[in-house]
Simulated assay, not measured.
Amino acid sequence: MSKNNRRKIIPPQDESISISLNHIYKENYPLFCFKYLSETSISTCRDHKFFFEFLIRLQKISQLGWPEIRTAPRHGFGMESISVDQIKPQLPACITPDVRKLHIFRATGDNHPFIGLQIDRIFRVLFIEANFGDIYDHE
């Protein structure tokens, strides 16, 4: 690349949204990890709207931060716990026997859940339930 064609970072127009590494390490917002995501339930889902709504939901949850999530309604943008014994599919190997509870968020506005485990700021998504009852029995 010639000197004139090198890529550069353009500073943000609004200084209030500038990001520094120091700021990122202090934030208390959820980070979502899909490394351990099971294909159970989502492998046969062909509803593109469902996945679009899920992405929008992740964005909204991410904007709240963990303190706000803890006080939000469970069928809104909050989360609730579920016993690992209630999960129908086999849990991924990363879930050790000492883990007794997982966490549930709503994946879409119609209350389809996604299930995972929060450790610090990271929420490890294990299952996304595209069809009610695929991952656990709903009461």
Rank of each mutant, 00 (worst) to 15 (best):
F32M: 03
K3S: 11
G133N: 06
Y136E: 11
E129K: 09
P97E: 08
E129R: 08
R70I: 08
P97A: 05
H103W: 13
K26R: 14
V99W: 00
P11C: 15
G109P: 09
R6Q: 13
H23D: 12
T96N: 12
I61H: 00
H23P: 08
R124W: 00
R7E: 10
S16K: 13
K88W: 10
E129A: 06
A72P: 07
H138Q: 11
L64M: 07
C33A: 10
F54R: 00
I82F: 13
H48E: 02
L91G: 06
L64A: 03
F132Y: 15
K26H: 12
I87H: 01
E129G: 06
D134V: 00
T71G: 12
P89L: 14
S83D: 08
N5C: 14
M1N: 05
I17A: 00
E80C: 06
I42D: 00
G116Y: 02
K88T: 11
M1L: 03
L55A: 15
I56D: 07
N22W: 11
K26L: 15
N4P: 09
C45L: 05
Y25G: 13
S81H: 11
G109S: 13
F32P: 00
R70C: 10
K3P: 08
G76H: 08
D137H: 07
Q86I: 10
S2V: 02
R70P: 06
Y29W: 14
D85A: 10
K101A: 03
R46D: 15
D110N: 08
F54Y: 03
H138V: 09
I10Q: 05
T96W: 12
K49T: 12
V125L: 07
S2P: 03
K26G: 13
Q118L: 02
S16P: 10
L31F: 08
F34R: 11
L126F: 11
F50I: 07
F52Q: 05
F32I: 02
N22D: 12
P11D: 14
E53F: 04
F77H: 05
Y136M: 13
E27H: 15
Y25Q: 12
T108N: 01
L102P: 11
K101P: 01
A72E: 13
T71S: 12
S83F: 02
E27I: 15
R46Y: 15
Q63V: 01
G65Q: 03
F123D: 02
S2E: 01
A72H: 10
H75D: 09
P30Q: 05
I119P: 13
L91V: 07
N28H: 08
I69Q: 10
Q59L: 08
Q86A: 12
S83H: 06
W66R: 10
R70V: 10
V84Y: 08
T44S: 15
P97I: 05
P12K: 00
I115E: 04
P11Q: 14
P30L: 06
F52M: 09
H112N: 06
C33K: 06
E27V: 15
N22V: 13
V84N: 06
P30H: 04
E53V: 07
N22M: 14
K35R: 13
I10L: 09
F52G: 02
S43A: 13
S16T: 14
S18A: 11
D14A: 04
F54C: 01
Q118C: 04
Q90W: 09
R57Q: 03
L55Q: 15
